[in-house]
């Protein structure tokens, strides 16, 4: 094809030289900033750095303090609840909406816009809107009470045991539209012939979705999973806008712990230890998945 090929085997280094040169800046950024920054953070998490980073090593002290801090434990628990439920619900609701949308309905554009609209709002705005909606004195509770149900009670943001679900509602409202759009794109990518074939075979529609279409949409599901999961781990602004971690410490999340201790408490060491733990959590999830996905030498669809 190219003149290179005719001139003999090119060395691996010089093949596609211009493309390689072009990607040098990004590679440098990745290595120096991402990897370097990560290493730096991990190293300094073993020091007693306060306001300024100082290399005074204290071993695992920061980690010991971290894992005995009730607030950190609450944060981890909240992240687990929020993560599992938001993963399940946004996937299920997103897919169901997309499937309904795929039935050649009228005004599809309009519905799609309506469902996707919340995604155009930042988490801060979403959080404030839902803070008002869930406020017992101004929001849903007072509206329902005004309609006659005087005993109606719905104040998740002021109840320590369910506050994280109040945040979950807002997150789902904001994020499901995007999942729906991704799923819809995936559904549109399914060949019409598949549907025709399944109709000829007399397979009910739900079975076709479950056993034929969904397995074919695997790449879309993986993409969606990555997008949702990264959003879960870094959830911060939604909590700040909706409850600022309250009531008490009932809706704290790890990212907020990191920020608060690094900057408000002026304790960098503690913040670095917490962010290192977040990194490890992500690694624990990502590494087995990446191994299954890319490793093992098995080629998947």
């Amino acid at each position: 094809m190219s003149s290179n090929a005719r001139a003999g085997r090119p060395s691996r280094l010089t093949r596609n030289l211009s493309a390689k040169i072009a990607s040098v800046p990004m590679m440098l950024t990745a290595v120096v900033i991402f990897l370097g920054g990560t290493l730096w953070t991990v190293i300094y998490s073993f020091t007693s750095s306060k306001l300024l980073p100082r290399l005074k090593f204290v071993g695992l002290d920061q980690y010991e303090r971290l894992w005995s801090a009730p607030r950190w434990l609450v944060s981890i628990e909240n992240l687990a609840i929020y993560g599992i439920f938001s993963l399940i619900f946004s996937m299920v609701i997103g897919f169901v909406l997309a499937a309904l949308m795929d039935q050649k309905i009228r005004f599809e554009n309009t519905f799609r816009t309506i469902f996707l609209y919340p995604f155009a709002l930042s988490f801060i705005v979403t959080g404030l809107v839902w803070q008002w909606l869930l406020n017992p004195e101004h929001g849903i509770q007072s509206v329902v009470r005004a309609m006659g149900w005087a005993g109606f009670e719905f104040d998740p943001l002021y109840n320590s045991s369910i506050v994280i679900y109040g945040i979950l509602i807002a997150a789902l409202w904001q994020g499901t539209g995007l999942v729906m759009c991704l799923m819809l794109a995936g559904l549109r990518g399914i060949d019409e012939d598949i549907w025709k074939a399944s109709r000829v075979d007399g397979i009910p529609m739900w079975k076709t979705y479950l056993f034929v279409v969904i397995p074919m949409m695997r790449p879309v599901f993986v993409t969606t999973l990555v997008i949702i999961a990264s959003g879960i781990v870094r959830v911060y602004d939604l909590v700040v806008a909706q409850t600022s971690g309250g009531p008490g410490i009932a809706s704290e999340v790890p990212a907020k712990y990191v920020y608060d201790y690094m900057f408000q408490a002026q304790n960098l060491g503690q913040g670095f230890a917490a962010s290192t733990m977040m990194l490890i959590t992500v690694a624990i999830i990502i590494v087995p998945w990446a191994y299954l996905e890319f490793g093992g030498g098995r080629k998947r669809v």
Partner: peptide, 17 residues
């Protein structure tokens, strides 16, 4: 500031729980 923050964590939990 560090001790102040820890104290805030404690008492905001205490008052809410």
């Amino acid at each position: 500031a560090d001790s102040q923050k820890q104290k805030e964590d404690l008492f905001s939990e205490f008052f809410a729980n």
